[in-house]
Amino acid sequence: MKIDNEYVSRIAALARLETSPEQAEKFAAQFRDIISYMDTLNQIDTAGVEPFYSPSQNMSVMREDEARSTCRRSDILANAPHHDGEYFIVPRII
């Protein structure tokens, strides 16, 4: 896939970002550099190698489903850009 300005804008849209034409152009050149460097991994034969996603040895950690106190609601809401004391308020969705 050729990484051009238009393609960069499409990735930006997927990531909920927007790019100016100048930024898209700059990013396109940088992404080509970075991704072609990443492409060097294709030289290595990894057929049959199990992917390694986490160094953690823990598997499906379970705990008792018990209520416990964590944060105060008011502390949480205090960080929200817009709230009514009970809920987060967001702009129109549909």
């Binding site: 849209a13 909920r16 927007e18 960080n79 929200a80 850009p81 967001v90 702009p91 129109r92």
Partner: peptide, 19 residues
């Protein structure tokens, strides 16, 4: 921009606010 931190105040709908 929903639960914490900065939110752009100009956006009129949700997706636009995210971006």
């Amino acid at each position: 921009g929903v639960r914490y931190g900065y939110r752009d105040q100009k956006a009129r709908e949700l997706m636009d606010m995210y971006r």
